[in-house]
Design a binder for these strands. Structure first.
Length: 432
RNA sequence: GGAGAGAUGGCGGAGCGGUUGAACGCGGCGGUCUUGAAAACCGCUGGCCCUUCACGGGGCUCGUGGGUUCGAAUCCCACUCUCUCCUCCA
């Protein structure tokens, strides 16, 4: 959520930022007008309340309180009526302002390039070479099905489209990836968290997933309508909201968290895209990395976060490139986002494996996470960052495609072997 | 699911319906003392909002939302959460 104060002080700045994202900016004047009305109403109500408080204090100081109360009661009743009348529109105005404000995306950082869609994203750097094969590399679903480690058919029977059953060495390899990712996160100083994957509506709202992305979310019914719980689409949600409504001490920052969780997404609007394989699933696993940090260093921290994520793919020996997302492609919460895309030989293309964002104070304001630099300082909002420190499914797909052998078997990347307990999968699905 | 207890400031812990935004202790900050530190002593020490160039002024806030009252942290109702016991359970 944007700071109302920013709209008041620099409306043009907000207008420009909105246009860069390709959305209209009429909301600025609409909100400012509502805000003017709101403040006028507050001033009116509070003046009346102050008057009333004077009378009430008079009674409490009087020797004969009963008599004083009796005397002043008519005046107070009159004030009560005025207060009620003056404040009548206030809740409505506040609700309108909050509702409008909550739908505005974050202000983009100056370094974000112009552009309306992914074609305008900028290549920042790339690492590694796509491997050369002396045979036609297969897509991962073919490799996985041949080896008997990926089973899409039975998954469909259980749950429908966009689910996968991992079997034997496949399940094992997936678990190895989890271990590897969490291990590297710990080495990089992240504290491992095992959070709930069902969260309340207000938690989901606080990290900016609602109300804009409600159609992407699975909801679990509660006993009452307002007791519904949401399945997290990413561990960014519980990790970012972990310190909700807290004031953190400045010397404790940055806080860095990691979590391995399942993630659930409806993928509405993605019909027909990536229908095969592990790329786009309703349920997938991910290791997430989240920072709560000081405002002045958050953009430097974003670079660190990106290198934490890219380091994983260097160690796995998978070629990748880092893209800086353009204005139109940058997410709602984010001021600046880098995508890390890894090479998939079977698809002959790079695919997103991690999206690293600096959400500045946008989520912190919604979630109310603040910091106090020292004992006398005023609280200020922290900056939050998030990115995946390992997408399990997509990385598994990349490993299958990059490390496939001509005979249909698979070589396990060196760094994964201690976690997997084997170094290769043979064409018959056995491990070695 | 059944029975009880409780939710107060960074922490602990008071609080007859009327200068209680909240005693007291701890912690934190500033100062005196000291070569320095500790101890001792003195002072300050929640958050949000409106208003003001500023100094300041004002409103709200004792789990949340309602109610009673001229006035509520204190009384009433509902909800949420925590703890103890029983029951059940991965």
């Amino acid at each position: 959520m944007l700071n109302l104060d920013l709209l008041r002080r620099e409306p043009d700045h907000v207008r420009v930022a909105a246009r860069r994202r390709g959305i209209g900016a009429e909301f600025v004047d609409r909100i400012l007008e509502l805000d003017r009305e709101r403040r006028a109403a507050i001033t009116g109500v509070e003046a009346l309340k102050a008057e009333k408080n004077v009378l009430t204090a008079q009674i409490s100081r009087a020797a004969d309180k009963k008599a004083a109360a009796a005397e002043l009661r008519p005046q107070i009743a009159e004030l009560d009526a005025s207060i009620a009348a003056a404040g009548e529109r206030l809740p409505v105005l506040e609700q309108q302002i909050d509702a409008e404000l909550a739908e505005i995306p974050n202000i983009l950082d100056g370094s974000v390039p112009d552009g309306s869609d992914e074609h305008a994203n900028v290549l920042v750097r790339s690492w590694g070479e796509p491997p050369a094969f002396d045979f036609e590399p297969r897509p991962h679903w073919e490799i996985g099905e041949r080896l008997g480690i990926l089973d899409f058919e039975r998954a469909a029977r259980l749950s429908g489209a966009r689910f996968t059953v991992l079997r034997g060495a496949g399940a094992r390899l997936s678990r190895a990836l989890v271990g590897f990712f969490l291990d590297r996160a710990a080495r990089n100083g992240y504290v491992e968290i095992d959070p709930p994957v069902l969260v309340t509506r207000s938690t989901m709202w606080s990290t900016g997933q609602l109300t804009k992305f409600a159609d992407q979310m699975y909801v679990v019914e509660g006993d009452a309508p307002d007791e519904a719980l949401y399945l997290i689409p990413t561990a960014e949600v519980p990790l970012t909201a972990l310190h909700r409504d807290e004031i953190l001490s400045g010397d404790g920052l940055p806080l860095r968290y990691t979590a391995h969780t399942p993630c659930f997404r409806k993928e509405a609007g993605a019909a027909g895209r990536d229908t095969r394989g592990l790329i786009r699933q309703h349920q997938f696993e991910k290791v997430e990395l989240v920072w709560l940090t000081m405002p002045e260093r958050s953009f430097d921290d974003l670079e660190t976060l990106v290198s934490n994520a890219t380091g994983l793919y260097e160690q796995l020996g998978i070629a990748y490139r880092v893209m800086l997302l353009c204005a139109g492609d940058t997410g709602f919460n984010s001021a600046k986002t880098y995508d890390i895309e890894i090479w998939l030989p079977g698809a002959n293309t790079y695919r997103e494996a991690s999206s690293c964002s600096n959400c500045t104070d946008f989520q912190a304001r919604r979630t109310s996470i603040r910091l106090r630099r020292d004992a006398t300082a005023k609280p200020e909002f922290v900056h939050t960052l998030n990115g995946s420190g390992g997408a399990i499914g997509r990385t598994l797909a990349a490993i299958l495609e990059n490390y496939q052998r001509a005979d249909g078997g698979l070589t396990v990347p060196e760094v994964l072997r201690p976690f997997a307990g084997f170094s290769a999968i043979e064409p018959d699905g056995s491990t070695r």
